[in-house]
Lab assay of single mutants.
Amino acid sequence: LQAFIKTLTGKTFTVEMEPSDTIENLKAKIQDKEGIPPDQQRLIFAGKQLEDGRTLSDYNIQKESTLHLVL
Rank of each mutant, 00 (worst) to 15 (best):
R54K: 14
I30P: 00
D21M: 11
E18C: 10
L71K: 05
V70M: 12
T7A: 05
I30Q: 00
I36Q: 02
P38H: 11
L43Q: 00
T66V: 15
V70C: 08
N60S: 07
T12D: 05
K29E: 03
L50D: 01
V15A: 02
I61Y: 07
Q2H: 12
G53Q: 10
K33E: 07
I44G: 02
K27H: 01
Q62G: 14
P19E: 10
V15K: 00
P38I: 15
D39G: 11
T9Q: 13
T66F: 09
E34S: 15
L69C: 01
S20R: 08
E16C: 10
T55A: 08
I23Q: 01
P38R: 14
T12C: 10
D52M: 05
R54H: 12
G53I: 06
P37M: 05
K11Y: 15
D32P: 01
A46I: 06
Q40K: 13
I5C: 05
L71S: 08
E16M: 12
I36S: 04
T14A: 10
R54D: 07
D52F: 03
P37E: 06
Q40S: 09
T55P: 08
Q62M: 12
T22E: 02
L1S: 06
V70W: 10
H68N: 08
E16W: 14
P37H: 11
S20T: 12
Q62E: 10
S57R: 11
H68K: 05
L67E: 02
N25S: 12
T66G: 05
D39C: 11
Q41T: 03
T7F: 11
T7W: 06
A28R: 14
S65Q: 08
T14W: 12
G47D: 06
F45V: 05
G53S: 12
T12E: 09
K63D: 15
T7D: 07
H68R: 06
L50S: 01
I44W: 15
T22K: 07
L69A: 01
T22P: 03
L43N: 00
L67C: 01
S20Y: 12
T55E: 03
E18F: 14
A3N: 03
A46E: 15
G10H: 04
L69S: 00
S65A: 13
S57I: 09
S57G: 11
A3R: 02
G35W: 02
S57A: 14
S57N: 10
G47F: 04
F13R: 00
N60G: 14
L26M: 06
E18Q: 13
E64V: 07
D21S: 08
A3I: 15
T14K: 08
G53H: 14
Q62N: 14
G47H: 04
V15F: 08
Q62C: 06
G47W: 03
Q49E: 15
S65T: 11
I23D: 00
S65G: 08
E34N: 09
K11D: 08
E18I: 10
T12S: 10
L71H: 06
K27C: 01
K11T: 08
T9D: 14
Q41H: 03
G53K: 11
F13D: 00
L1I: 15
I23K: 01
L1G: 06
K27P: 00
L71I: 13
K48Y: 08
N25G: 07
G53D: 12
Q40T: 08
L71C: 07
L43R: 00
Q40M: 11
E16D: 11
F13I: 11
